[in-house]
Design a protein around this nucleic acid. Sequence first.
RNA 1: GCCGGGGUAGGGUAGGUGGUCAUCCUCCGGGACUGUGGAUCCCGGGACUCGGGUUCGAAUCUCGGCCCCGGCCCCA
Length: 431
Amino acid sequence: MEFARPRGTRDFLFDEMRQRKKAESTLRKIFESYGYQEIKTPLFEELKLFTTKSGEEIVDQLYNFKDKSDRELTLRPEITAPVARLYLNELEKTAVKPIKLYYYGSCFRYERPQKGRFRQFWQFGCELIGAKTPQGEAEVIALCTDSINALGITTADVNINHLGIIRGLFSHFNISDETQREIMVVIDKGDKDLLIESLSGDNPVIDNDELNQILLKLIDLVGDKSILNDVEELIAPYDESKAALEELKELIDLLEDFDVENYTLNLGVARGLDYYTGIVFEIYVPELGAQKQICGGGSYSLVKVFGGQEVESTGFALGFDRLMNAIEELTEVEELGSHLDIYVIPITEDVRSEAYKITQLLRRNGIKADVDLNNKKFRKLMNYADKIKVEKIALMGPKELEDGKITIKDMVSGNQELIDIENIVEYVKGE
RNA sequence: GCCGGGGUAGGGUAGGUGGUCAUCCUCCGGGACUGUGGAUCCCGGGACUCGGGUUCGAAUCUCGGCCCCGGCCCCA
């Protein structure tokens, strides 16, 4: 084709758009029911915003460019950092805390596209700023699971961890930041063989057998809250991890209050980034294969990222495209019906002007109505109404107009009824 | 960045050893059909991903680009 779209971006047609809009509105409703307010941030930001947050390495994965004034900019790869920037710019000094923000927008990463992975993709997420308490975290997780349930995704597996436990161990054994980061990345991959290799191979990342043995046991702890006892036993000698474990326990108790029942404790969940310090969680839909992660979230510290007054935040981002894949995979795709409520058909040429008036009347009363704009003949209009699968048509000709009436026909049953024009809005709405 | 498989009307396809070859279905527009749709028939519309090379001649062979589909790497 002469005009190709850039690799890894997508077009969306009507039906797909409608399914997406439906999911979007479901999510909005739920986020707003939790008291979140929507914000929008720019699609591009200073490159520095993201390198500060995530390190220089991520430039490889960014859609970055220089503008005409030679500024280093980039399309945003995620929305947490822009929200943090916005907070520092606009809200830090004025807004009443806690602040509940949500966003829905596209993000960009310069990577090879593949299934469940595009260069332009959509994230739906939130940030709870200034309420880093176990109850804040519990509520955020509740919002997340409610959202996923409302979309009909039934096989989602919510995995929760508290990074303070493992950080406590690192601290106890005096592990350097750099080594911590290295080992976190390996844990984050979820590949145990690789971890064993890293820890006990020829060139161990950590030269401490005691810690290595604990780590290997720790990341294997996956299950319901009964595993907390195992964790407790394992970290008993290490005071640095105990506070985190207590926080985790408190969170687990609170999840019950927030009516969250299905979750997995998974001490192997990690994050590559070192500003995540407390609770982290990830959600997987196994049916999606390699790109099964539909959500990532946790608590982090804004001060660690950008400076400014210490503010603890909790948030998560849903991968909207993957959610749509999961919905498609797991739920019966609903027939959408027509995009119109009614189609207005003038039977003869001389009543067209009346047809336009009636169409406008319907529209102004919130009815999705359409009318022919191409002077097509009656038969063609019937044909068209059939093709677009509209359920109702309004038929009008000189005969019924003389009496101030109009025919409403149900295209599914074939029944039709003669009604007074002044009642048309009520009639169409009423059924 | 790497590896595989692809690209023929809007969608789905046939042809592929170079030449009478651009096929069929669907779709879209018009008509038969004049105040009641879905059927049928007729007419019409629309494509060889782009560029270079070989050749008298390329959808077909060849090289490169672009794009698509998988899989790695990566995944804040």
